[in-house]
């Protein structure tokens, strides 16, 4: 370790920080996200009442778990669809390829929110008929549902990458050495040459999953049927935001705008709603910045 004097340390730190901002904005925003969540956690542990704190904690964990599951399902669905489409497009018979393309285009034509709402209707039916009981199954079902409407972007990306590399010499040179095409596509094209592209897309999917889940949970807060409502589902940031307490907390922001002296109360008396809103908005901003940062760092 270099022993730097205190006078030298500050410029050195500044240089490192500047490099972090300019060279790796994705890392910077990932760090800021963790710091921001950590700071909020500490604040809530100190000032938010215990039941609300536990609800918030469960909602955050469930939302993140749901988004992570969505990313996993998106990866599996997107990768599989990409490979199947690529394989079918090269067969002499065009019918299977056209059928699959038509099916995927149908999904693509449906607005995401509408599609997921239809999925929730199905989920409600399953819950009413006692087919789905566990709250974990709700989470998995929701993640699967969202991923059905997000995986197509990944499929498009993978097909674009495969088509681009199929024209290169190394693809053909490997084929001419008898290396199986599947291996070239999976290992050499997608794993070795497209990982940054895929990772960037999955980060964006993570943000999109948070947004869609929160939006849907907020929309269905009015209830899905006589027997099924949000209380049947695992708590998420969206459902917590839709609760009456949180809505009042959010309304308090408007009050504080008219009476600035009330602003300080937002951080103590209205902490649940403010925390939920902060977690959603801050996470979405950070995911957006991380995704853009990856594009910049790897010059995608």
């Amino acid at each position: 370790m270099r022993d730097l004097g205190s006078r030298q340390r500050i410029p050195w730190l500044l240089v490192r920080l500047t490099r972090l901002v300019t060279d790796s904005p994705d890392r910077l925003w990932a760090g800021l996200w963790i710091l921001g969540i950590g700071a909020l956690w500490a604040w809530d542990a100190a000032f938010l009442n215990r039941p609300a704190y536990l609800r918030l904690q469960a909602a955050f964990v469930n939302t993140m778990a749901g988004a992570t599951l969505t990313v996993l399902f998106t990866l599996v669905l997107g990768w599989s669809a990409g490979l199947v489409l690529d394989s079918l497009s090269r067969r002499s018979s065009r019918i299977p390829y056209l059928l699959l393309t038509f099916t995927l285009s149908l999904i693509r034509s449906l607005p995401q929110i509408v599609g997921i709402l239809i999925g929730y209707v199905l989920l409600t039916i399953f819950i009413e008929r006692d087919i789905v009981r566990s709250t974990y199954l709700h989470l998995i079902w929701t993640a699967l549902l969202i991923s059905v409407f997000t995986f197509l972007e990944l499929t498009d990306l993978l097909r674009e990458r495969i088509d681009q590399y199929r024209k290169t010499d190394f693809f053909n040179a490997m084929l001419c050495c008898g290396i199986p095409e599947r291996r070239i596509i999976n290992v050499d094209v997608l794993w070795k040459n497209s990982l940054a592209h895929i990772f960037q897309k999955l980060i964006a999917t993570f943000g999109m999953a948070i947004f869609l889940q929160c939006s849907i949970d907020f929309i269905i807060s009015v209830g899905l049927s006589m027997d099924v409502s949000l209380s049947n589902f695992s708590p998420t940031l969206g459902s917590l935001l839709a609760s009456l307490d949180s809505k009042q907390d959010i309304l308090a922001i408007g009050v504080a705008l008219g009476r600035p002296g009330y602003a300080g109360e937002l951080l103590f008396r209205h902490l649940q709603g403010i925390s939920v809103a902060f977690l959603i908005v801050f996470s979405l901003v950070c995911m957006y910045k991380i995704s853009n940062g990856i594009v910049r760092r790897y010059r995608l």
Binding site: F170, C176, C177
Partner: peptide, 12 residues
């Protein structure tokens, strides 16, 4: 087996 002309492009 075939050895391609441009080694720069023939290897990943």
């Amino acid at each position: 087996a075939m050895v391609f002309q441009h080694a720069d492009e023939a290897l990943n």
